[in-house]
Amino acid sequence: NSKQKVQMSVHQFTNMCFKQCVPAINNGDLSTHEEQCLNNCVNRFLDTNIRIVKGLQSLQ
């Protein structure tokens, strides 16, 4: 269902953005910089996804 789809997307984005935005583990908190990066990461990924879909539509 739809709730499960959202959860799977959150799993995928967290996996991807954590790798890029949290380079080192020095404590259990997120720094302001890491949190901002995680927010940007998911938003830029969704922007990229929309742009690719539109681009593919315009090719057809």
Binding site: C41, G55, L56
Partner: peptide, 23 residues
């Protein structure tokens, strides 16, 4: 395509959208 182009065009901390590169 989304994964590959995100990886090639955008880098941490992901401040800008890089639309030209994505296209």
């Amino acid at each position: 395509i989304t994964e590959n182009c995100f990886e090639k065009c955008l880098t941490s901390p992901y401040a800008n959208a890089q639309e030209g590169c994505v296209d």
